[in-house]
Amino acid sequence: MSTMSELISIDGVCHTYTPAHGREVLALDNVSLQVQRQEFVALLGPSGCGKSTLLYLIGGFLPVTQGSIRVDGKPVGGPGPDRGIVFQHFALFPWKTVRGNVLYGLEKMGLPRAEREERARTFIDMVGLSGFEESYPSQLSGGMKQRAAIARTLAIDPGILLMDEPFGALDAQTRGLMQAELLRIWRGSPKTVMFVTHDVHEAVYLARRIVVMSARPGRVKAVIEADLDRADPQLTKSRAFIDIVDEVWSLVREEAVRAERYRAE
């Protein structure tokens, strides 16, 4: 089924949560997806459809119990710095400053001190947090925390980037800047990106392929190609762009309605 150029290969993955108290939840049902090396894939779907769960499985945080997930041909074991993740709720170390958070992964890489400091400064600067190096997460706004988390993950330069609504807490303006920045980084050193978002416009702007998931239990409903010229400054006003956004929108809306009805029952 999979060929050599596929970096992430997800085949027939199901995931059931079995909490200590409360009932079981089937979060993912027979999900299959192949992601090419250096591909930028967006993941869309109604809340609770298992987008985060899928990222956690790829990241190696949750065990794959049914189906298989292979990265570079090997089944995923535990987590590792080859798969960087930006969590939906940031997960910054609260006892470390912004600088300390960004330095953590660099220390684990074993870089010499001067180089660590240099890299940390570069990435903090890139996400627009210079001047807040010595702030603790509790002193930052939601959007600033999100940017600090992004800097921390980008700094270790992982081959695979798993991003869980990384721009969700940002205002429209900062969000636009960060999107452009992410594309610039991706062009500079192409990574394989899996990007979860609720924003259809953002998905089409960033990703070559857009995966729309169905309401719980999560399945792959549709995969849409968005082979657009992202260097074109007029891209978002082009016919092709608007058509794809419309197409994705109607798919997402169908599922949102289904999810709503499901909840009402």
């Binding site: 590792g80 960087g84 953590y104």
Partner: peptide, 28 residues
Amino acid sequence: DQALIWSARSLGASRLATLWNVVVPSAL
């Protein structure tokens, strides 16, 4: 926090390092 432990692991920390760098400070 589970997510903090996961963060450390995905940033390259070993299990033991995670105990010392995340679990202990969380418990302080």
